[in-house]
């Protein structure tokens, strides 16, 4: 019998990408995707279930579908996407409900993979150059997104302790760049000039979007338990990142940076949330060797991820965006469930 997998946040970039990857895996028998919005990528056999933001329906779904694996990709790490309140709903309350459902006495869940972020380490002057998974953060969490992710990790730790029969993997991803993903940082690099903070040239680290999806698949199919940083090899100065992308930089003042950033936001040029301003000042490095030791091979280094992103950006400039996909409930239901469709 194959795996029965439930993916949270199917309508998000990561949920969709992970579902597509799993559909190619014959050992995965059932894929169920949960989200408040419809999927935005074309899916063959994934079943989409609409849920409310904080997943109160989840316990019922788990019971009904008897899934054995949950991939929790729906943690918001980009605070420019929504208000602090809905981020809290999704990250903290959503995860609480998910863990409650997975940890119910009769639960069929045996594996849980959570996609977190290296944001949990923060970014400050007191940081070590490389954070290992057990290195404590050097500064108190200041931003909402960091606090919510730290809360989620606390819940997850309790869950892992209370449910020793469940393989729990916590992946902390560094800043992602890639062909398709849109983040505040990728938007900054697509402007004609890229913002920087005057007098600072922090060492940045990136992970390529394909490596993100591959690492989730990797810990799922190999049952790799534990906490892992997922980040490309090496760190490179922000000025070099801009240079690889062929961009000039425009300095924000080193004092009153937040004020200058809110001016940019008001002018609808670019939204630079506080955690990103910290990053542009101090950078962040996550030691990626633990996941390598577990057997994972990265395809891109940090600089490689930047180069790949720059190439995709140049291609898009010439040929435009790829056509977007529109989910049609009736059509999808027909192909999945109608007796008229011939299946082998």
């Amino acid at each position: 019998m194959g795996k029965r997998v439930l993916i949270t946040g199917l309508g998000t970039f990561w949920g969709g990408r992970v579902a597509q990857a799993l559909e190619r895996d014959p050992s995965v028998e059932v894929i169920i995707g949960l989200d408040t919005i419809e999927p935005r990528v074309e899916l063959e056999r994934t079943e989409f279930v609409r849920a409310d933001q904080n997943y109160s329906i989840l316990a019922r779904i788990v019971r009904a579908t008897q899934v054995d694996t949950i991939l929790h990709t729906f943690l918001v790490v980009d605070s420019t996407r929504m208000t602090g309140r809905s981020m809290h709903e999704i990250n903290v309350i959503g995860t609480m409900n998910l863990l409650a459902a997975a940890g119910a006495p009769d639960s069929s869940v045996r594996q849980l993979v959570v996609k977190s972020s290296t944001l949990v380490y923060g970014s400050s002057d007191k940081d070590p150059t490389w954070f290992r998974e057990e290195t404590p953060r050097a500064s108190a969490p200041r931003t909402r997104v960091e606090r919510s992710l730290l809360e989620v990790e606390d819940y997850l730790r309790d869950f892992a302790e209370d449910n020793p029969h469940v393989v729990v993997s916590l992946l902390r991803f560094s800043n992602v760049l890639g062909t398709d993903i849109v983040t505040a940082l990728s938007k900054a690099l697509q402007l004609p000039v890229t913002p920087t903070i005057f007098g600072f040239d922090p060492a940045m680290q990136f992970v390529e979007e394909d490596d993100v999806v591959r690492s989730i698949e990797f810990v799922m199919s190999n049952q790799v338990a534990g906490i892992y940083n997922v980040a490309g090899d090496g760190r490179l100065p922000w000025s070099e990142v801009a240079a690889i992308c062929g961009k000039r930089t425009w300095p924000l003042p080193p004092y009153g940076t937040g004020l200058a950033a809110s001016a940019l936001d008001l002018a609808r040029v670019l939204e630079l949330p506080p955690e990103l301003l910290d990053l542009l000042r101090y950078g962040r490095g996550a030691d990626n060797r633990r996941l390598k030791r577990a057997g994972f091979d990265y395809r891109y280094t940090s600089a490689g991820a930047v180069e790949n992103f720059a190439e995709a950006m140049r291609l898009r400039k010439t040929v435009g965006d790829s056509p977007s996909y529109k989910y049609e409930r009736d059509v999808e239901a027909f192909f999945r469930h109608s007796p008229a469709v011939v299946r082998d």
Binding site: A160, P164, V224, A225, I227, I244, G304
Partner: peptide, 20 residues
């Protein structure tokens, strides 16, 4: 299962990644 403790392993040989 159930632990947040990692399992150390020897990494297999991997070709050098492009690092531009």
């Amino acid at each position: 299962a159930g632990t947040l403790v990692h399992l150390p392993r020897q990494a297999p040989e991997q070709p050098e990644l492009r690092d531009p």
